[in-house]
Simulated scan of single mutants.
Amino acid sequence: MNKFQSTLAAAAMAAISLVPLQARAALFEDDEARRAILEIRERLNNMQSEINAKADKSNSFDLNNQNEQLKQEIARLRGQIEMLTNELANTQKRQKDFYVDLDTRLRKLEPQQITVDGKEVSVEQGEQRAYEAALAYFKAGDYKNAGASFFDFLRRYPNSGFAPSAQYWLGNTYYAQRDYRNAISAQQVVVKNYPDSPKAADALLNIASCHMELKDKGSAKKTLETLVAQYPDSPAARTAKERLTALK
Rank of each mutant, 00 (worst) to 15 (best):
Q22M: 12
A203C: 15
V100Y: 03
E120S: 02
D31I: 11
L135H: 06
N193V: 10
Q69W: 15
L244C: 07
Q5H: 14
A36S: 04
Q188E: 14
A53E: 05
F162C: 10
Q5I: 06
R107K: 13
L170W: 04
K93C: 06
S122F: 04
V116D: 10
Q95R: 13
L224R: 03
N206G: 00
L244W: 04
V116K: 13
P164R: 06
N193H: 07
P20T: 05
I184E: 02
P235H: 02
D216T: 11
E120G: 00
A36V: 04
K215R: 08
Q230I: 05
E124K: 08
M13P: 15
Y175A: 00
I207W: 02
I74L: 10
D101F: 06
P232G: 01
M83K: 13
A23K: 06
A89C: 14
E29T: 12
L247M: 07
F150P: 01
A9W: 15
N46C: 09
F150S: 03
S58W: 07
E225N: 03
F138C: 12
R181M: 09
A36C: 09
T85K: 13
T115G: 03
D196P: 05
A23V: 09
A25L: 13
T91Q: 07
N46F: 07
N90G: 14
L38W: 03
I37Q: 09
L224A: 05
K248Y: 13
L106A: 03
M1K: 01
A11F: 07
A10T: 15
P20I: 10
G126Q: 05
Y174H: 05
G218L: 09
V190R: 01
L70H: 07
E124I: 06
V116N: 10
A240P: 08
A246Y: 11
A200N: 07
K57C: 00
Y194S: 11
R129I: 02
A133M: 00
K96E: 14
E73N: 14
G218D: 11
V228S: 00
Y143I: 01
K144H: 03
R94L: 10
Q125H: 09
S60D: 04
K215T: 04
T226A: 02
L214Y: 11
A208S: 12
L135T: 10
Q128Y: 04
Y99A: 09
K3Y: 07
K199S: 14
Q80T: 12
L27Q: 11
Q66R: 13
L27N: 12
D30I: 08
I74T: 12
N52D: 08
A201F: 02
A26Q: 15
M83Q: 10
K119D: 11
G126I: 09
A240C: 12
Q167S: 07
I81R: 14
A14R: 13
T239C: 06
P235Q: 04
E225Q: 08
A23C: 08
A136Q: 11
A133N: 01
E87L: 09
R41W: 02
K221I: 09
T173D: 05
V228Y: 00
I16D: 13
K248H: 11
D101N: 07
D142T: 13
E68P: 10
L84E: 04
N86W: 11
K199Q: 14
R35C: 12
D103F: 05
Q69V: 15
K57L: 03
F4Q: 12
E132C: 11
D97T: 12
Q80W: 12
A229K: 01
Y194V: 09
L109W: 15
K215S: 02
T173Q: 04
L170H: 03
L205S: 00
T85H: 14
Y143R: 10
I81Y: 12
